[in-house]
């Protein structure tokens, strides 16, 4: 894959009274295939995400950042994280905020990783993590200085597969994001994610399934660093065809022909004389 970039990209800036709030959701669930096969990949993903997050902060002094870990049983904010900010001594004067991000993320992530007991749920509840991120963004927007424009987006970095069991939650978070003008970006590390891809399409975000995990940081920087308002000017991967199949209520399987109740709009994969949802 080739991404052409206009040379003036770095100088491309938005007006001063506009800032960007980025919430990154990193899927840390040990049940993901790539992590089961090679647990060290998590370190690499974390480092890439931190470097990417710092690049976001570096783009503009007022840019805001939050990072969440979506684990198998809990989802948590690892940056800014609970409690007071860590006390970071100035390392080289200029970049203490970047050290702060790295130290905070790693410390809080460690707590999340060690909190899990033996049973692992292989399904990462990404829709729930996105729901938390939307509440967080709604609070930031509620408490912002009047007149300040904040463009918010949520970037999900995951190697999980998406399952139709979260269909309802996914649709709710996608429509909410769309209503609130929050862009959903997805970087898929392993499998193709058809539901999350719908979310990107609904919210005008970018969906990218990266061909190899070694290049993660490059992909993040090239594709996901530019803010949505700037993106129209860049040559990014062409929009992918989105699969808009429905999930049946009976088995939560994706279907392309089904039976819809004329009163409550429930979808079933097989015909039955009465609707089990509303009768």
């Amino acid at each position: 894959m080739n991404f052409e970039l206009s040379s003036d990209r770095v100088t491309e800036t938005s007006p001063l009274d506009e800032t960007s709030l980025l919430v990154i959701i990193l899927d840390t669930n040990p049940g993901q295939r790539i992590l089961r096969e090679n647990p060290h990949i998590l370190t690499q993903c974390t480092d890439s995400v931190i470097a990417f997050a710092n690049a976001h902060l570096m783009q503009k002094a007022q840019n805001k950042l939050a990072i969440m870990a979506c684990h198998s049983k809990i989802s948590e904010f690892v940056y800014p994280g609970p409690g007071k900010p860590l006390d970071i001594r100035q390392v080289d004067g200029q970049y203490e905020v970047f050290t702060l991000v790295e130290k905070t993320v790693k410390q809080n992530l460690m707590k999340v990783l060690t909190s899990e007991t033996s049973t692992v749920y292989t399904e990462s509840l990404l829709a729930g993590a996105i729901a938390m991120a939307l509440c967080y963004i709604a609070r930031i927007l509620r408490t912002k200085t009047p007149g300040l424009k904040i463009n918010s987006r949520i970037l999900t970095v995951t190697g999980s597969s998406d399952s139709a069991s979260q269909y309802m939650n996914y649709m709710n978070v996608f429509f909410t994001a769309q209503k609130q003008s929050v862009v959903i970006d997805v970087c898929a590390l392993d499998q193709h994610l058809s539901l999350l891809q719908q979310g990107c399409d609904i919210t005008s975000g970018l969906y990218l399934r990266i061909p190899q995990i070694q290049g993660l940081l490059q992909y993040l920087l090239w594709v996901f660093l530019p803010e949505p308002p700037v993106r129209q000017k860049l040559v990014l991967p062409p929009p992918v065809k989105v699969d808009y199949r429905a999930a049946c209520f009976c088995h939560r399987e994706l279907i392309d022909v089904g039976y819809v109740c004329s009163v409550c709009l429930s979808i079933f994969c097989k015909f039955s004389p009465i609707c089990t949802t509303c009768q």
């Binding site: 809990i74 749920y121 829709a127 729930g128 729901a131 938390m132 509440c135 978070v173 909410t176 609130q180």
Partner: peptide, 20 residues
């Protein structure tokens, strides 16, 4: 926000025993 707009409880949706 949850009951007006989101319609998904963030607590339920992040918990494997309650997300459905």
């Amino acid at each position: 926000f949850v009951h007006d707009i989101l319609h998904t409880c963030p607590g339920c949706a992040t918990n494997p025993t309650t997300f459905q």
